[in-house]
Simulated assay, not measured.
Amino acid sequence: MLANVNRNTKVRREPFDALDFIPWNDHHRDAETAEPLLLDDPEAHSAMIDRMLFPRRNG
C-alpha cells in the first residue's frame, strides 16, 4: 500500500491495513461490544431504522 511508504514509524508503529481506509470500519469494531438500541414502540423503532438507512429521504 502506498500509505505505508510515507508512514511515520515513530507515530504509527503498525503498518496501515486496507480496513484503515474504510470509513465505517470503526463502527464494525465497536459493534462487537455495543449494546443494541431497541425502542418499545415498534413504529418508532421502524422509523429509526428508516432514518439510519435512508438519512436524506424525506419522511
Rank of each mutant, 00 (worst) to 15 (best):
T33Y: 00
D17K: 08
R56Q: 11
G59Q: 09
T33D: 01
R7S: 05
V5M: 15
M52Q: 05
H27R: 08
V5N: 08
D50Q: 13
A18W: 06
I22L: 13
E14W: 15
R51Q: 01
L37Y: 00
E32Y: 09
T33A: 09
A18G: 03
R29E: 08
A31I: 10
L2I: 09
D40Y: 08
N25M: 07
N25F: 10
A18Q: 11
P36V: 04
V5H: 07
A3V: 14
F16R: 06
M1K: 06
R51S: 00
E32A: 05
N25T: 10
M48K: 07
D20S: 03
R7G: 01
E35N: 00
M1P: 06
V5K: 13
D50L: 13
R57P: 02
D26M: 13
S46A: 15
S46R: 07
I22H: 06
M48V: 12
L53A: 01
A34D: 06
H27Y: 10
T9S: 05
F16T: 02
F21V: 08
D26N: 09
A47S: 10
L53W: 07
P23A: 08
L19K: 07
H45D: 05
A31L: 14
H27M: 09
R29F: 14
P42E: 01
E35F: 03
E35T: 13
L19W: 09
N6I: 15
H28S: 03
T9K: 05
E43H: 01
L38M: 05
R12E: 12
A3E: 15
E32I: 15
P36R: 01
N25I: 04
M52L: 14
A18E: 13
A34W: 02
A3S: 15
N6S: 08
D41G: 02
F16N: 03
R12N: 12
D40M: 04
P15A: 07
A31P: 03
N58S: 10
N4F: 12
D20C: 07
V11M: 14
N8D: 14
P42R: 01
L39W: 05
R13E: 13
R29K: 04
T33F: 00
L39H: 01
P36H: 02
A3W: 04
A44P: 06
N25A: 10
E14V: 12
P55T: 04
T9Q: 04
E14Y: 13
A3L: 14
M1E: 07
R56A: 12
R13V: 11
T9R: 05
N58I: 13
W24A: 05
N8T: 10
E32D: 05
G59D: 12
K10T: 15
V5W: 13
T9H: 00
T9I: 15
R12W: 08
H45Q: 15
F54Q: 04
N25W: 11
D17N: 11
W24T: 06
N6K: 07
L39F: 08
A31V: 06
N4Y: 06
M1C: 08
I22W: 06
L53E: 04
N25V: 01
D20F: 06
L39Q: 02
D50P: 03
R57N: 04
S46L: 13
A31R: 06
F21D: 01
L37I: 15
F16Y: 14
P55F: 00
A47M: 09
D30N: 07
R13Q: 11
R12H: 11
E43Y: 03
P42S: 01
M48D: 02
V11D: 11
